[in-house]
């Protein structure tokens, strides 16, 4: 183990990994914040659970059915789905923002999320189920559409963002239109889901989102080496001997799958993918893409938004209302910063 300038190099046989102290410490702080937020989300609400009682329920040592139902059937799945979906959105957002070198190029701004939502709605309308498959397919088609339309002798991030915003608005409208064919009750349900909601999640949702996230995490860790270089110019990346196009394809596929699974379990939670990256990059610093920190930030933002949604009694506001409340000001701030710097 050698230490050089705020970095520690971990070596294992011929393998070596670089970790910055700052990233390690602040990453731990972020994880601690996540744990505290998750614990308080589990204990508070319209039915408060004392910590000892909750712990006993968790370990299966409680005979209180109400406690069991509240904690194990309602709160835990909801919290774990929030964390998983938020992490998937955050990870995906940071990957696209780094690859396209623009914080506006997150999947929820450039239409990939709307595509996944539209796919999910269509799956429901046409088959009455397979939301996950629909979301994955919808996200992939939206990605193909946006990238294809903006392609001009290579990937053009600025064109991609403008076309993406257009495609996003179009697909959102298409989702609304598709709901017209549903019966009133399902349509009302879908309308809430289209804002992004974590109401009534179950353990299947948890398994789906965490299963996909766990499967893709090693891929994203492997990609983070490349992402740490893709934030330089295309010419530099090629000159360093990295395969630009295969990397972009792998990143796009991984990012779209993450968005698809997030949308399938939580709806197109607005702005989570968008805010996670910039916040994480500011926390970690040093111009690094901060992929993992972005996942943790996405999870934290989603969980806090959901806690806020639950805190308003009776109305059952969708979680997406609160992620939008957090995200929209960040969007405006980034637009102002980028306009001032001329990097928009």
């Amino acid at each position: 183990m050698t230490v050089a300038s705020g970095f520690v190099t971990l070596r294992l046989a011929s393998l070596s990994f670089v970790l910055s102290y700052r990233a390690a410490i602040l990453g731990t702080v972020l994880l601690a914040a996540l744990l505290i937020a998750a614990a308080s989300a589990a204990l508070t609400g319209s039915y408060p659970l004392p910590a000892a009682q909750a712990w006993a329920t968790l370990l299966g040592q409680s005979n209180n059915t109400a406690d069991q139902v509240i904690l194990l059937d309602h709160r835990l799945p909801r919290i774990l789905t929030a964390l998983g979906a938020g992490a998937a959105f955050g990870l995906s957002g940071a990957m696209f923002q780094t690859m396209l070198r623009n914080p506006l190029a997150s999947p929820d701004v450039i239409g990939f999320t709307s595509g996944a939502a539209f796919g999910a709605v269509m799956a429901l309308v046409l088959t009455g189920g397979s939301i996950l498959l629909g979301a994955l397919l919808g996200g992939a088609i939206a990605a193909l559409l946006v990238i294809g339309l903006s392609w001009s002798a290579g990937l053009q991030p600025n064109r991609l963002i403008l076309i993406g915003v257009g495609v996003s608005l179009f697909l959102t409208a298409a989702s609304d239109l598709a709901m017209a064919s549903l019966d009133a009750l399902t349509a009302a349900d879908m309308a809430r889901w289209l804002i992004g909601t974590l109401n009534a999640r179950n353990w299947t949702d948890v398994a789906v989102v965490w299963g996909v996230f766990a499967a893709l995490l090693p891929v994203t860790l492997w990609l983070s080496f490349a992402l740490n270089r893709l934030n330089l110019s295309d010419d530099t990346v090629t000159s360093l001997g990295l395969p630009l196009s295969p990397l972009r394809l792998t990143i796009t596929v991984t990012g779209v799958v993450l968005v698809g699974v997030g949308v399938a379990v939580a709806g197109p939670l607005p702005f989570v993918a968008f805010v996670a990256g910039p916040i994480a990059r500011r926390i970690i610093g040093g111009g690094r893409p901060a992929i993992l920190a972005a996942a943790a930030t996405g999870a934290l933002v989603t969980l806090l938004a959901d806690v806020a949604a639950r805190a308003i009694p009776l109305v059952h506001l969708p979680t997406g209302v609160f992620t939008a409340l957090i995200g929209a000001p960040v969007l405006m701030w980034l637009l102002l910063v980028q306009t001032r710097k001329g990097t928009l």
Binding site: F17, L221, T236, L242, G287
Partner: peptide, 21 residues
Amino acid sequence: LSVRDLVSRGRTPYQSALRQY
């Protein structure tokens, strides 16, 4: 991005995700 971080990117052709340094 610090100067040293930038310069270290020049080592990329000798590195990989599993051999970062």
